[in-house]
């Protein structure tokens, strides 16, 4: 996708994600050798993270994600302070907390495609990259525009309509579980959680955006059926 400039705040989020992974590896290495000095270092790490989140939260993280991370860190800080002589349990608890934070980062990364999709040229660049082999008429039907208009977006850009932006967000999630033609078929298949409607029929419904994103996300992992 030449010419697409990625959002720096997203890069910051990716850095945070990698930092958590590095911290998990350190935690595992400490393992059974965990002692007062290690606990002190863990406590300091938790305080540093909490302080950094307060002072300079990554802009891509929404208020609920930030609040969730703070809760996880504070709980971990208290767990370290209350360490009761079972070091492996403390390490296990902290590993789960670090993993939970990593999942908050991951979900934020998934939900944000990292570029300004309000630019139709950029949005089409992304869709073309993710949907190779999909016929122009099918993409035009998905976007509810003529193939000629879609081609104009590719060549000259312009302001992306809401439907195009929403399709980009949905395809960004769906590409993890479907082939390009599978993505197009997903939009046409009725879904129980959407009241039996096919996603394509709700793309212009301003109230349905959140439900559509959740439906796209839902297929990424097995649920208890």
């Amino acid at each position: 996708m030449a010419g697409v400039r990625y959002d720096p705040s997203l890069q910051e989020l990716r850095r945070g994600d990698r930092q958590v992974e590095a911290w998990q590896a350190e935690l595992l290495r400490s393992g059974e050798r965990i002692d007062a000095a290690v606990l002190e270092r863990l406590e300091l790490t938790a305080r540093t993270w909490a302080s950094r989140l307060n002072d300079a939260p990554p802009p891509t993280l929404g208020p609920s994600a930030l609040s969730e991370i703070r809760r996880i860190i504070i709980g971990g800080y208290e767990r370290v302070l209350d360490a009761d002589g079972r070091p492996l349990d403390v390490v296990d608890d902290l590993m789960i907390r670090a993993e939970a934070i990593r999942h908050v980062f991951r979900d934020s990364l998934d939900a944000d495609v990292g570029v300004a999709t309000g630019d139709a040229h950029v949005a089409m660049d992304m869709l073309d990259g993710w949907l190779p082999g999909v016929r122009g008429v099918e993409l035009a039907e998905l976007l509810d525009r003529s193939p000629r208009q879609v081609q104009r977006w590719r060549s000259t850009g312009g302001v992306a309509p809401r439907r195009l932006e929403l399709v980009v967000r949905l395809v960004a999630l769906l590409r993890h579980g479907w082939t390009p033609n599978g993505i197009i078929a997903w939009f046409r298949r009725p879904r129980a959680e959407l009241g039996g409607a096919a996603p394509i029929s709700l793309l212009d419904d301003e109230d349905a955006g959140h439900d559509l994103v959740e439906a796209a996300r839902r297929g990424r992992a097995q649920h208890g059926s």
Partner: peptide, 8 residues
């Protein structure tokens, strides 16, 4: 389809 099979 995530990088882990588990939920934390």
């Amino acid at each position: 389809n995530y990088d882990t099979p588990f939920r934390a």
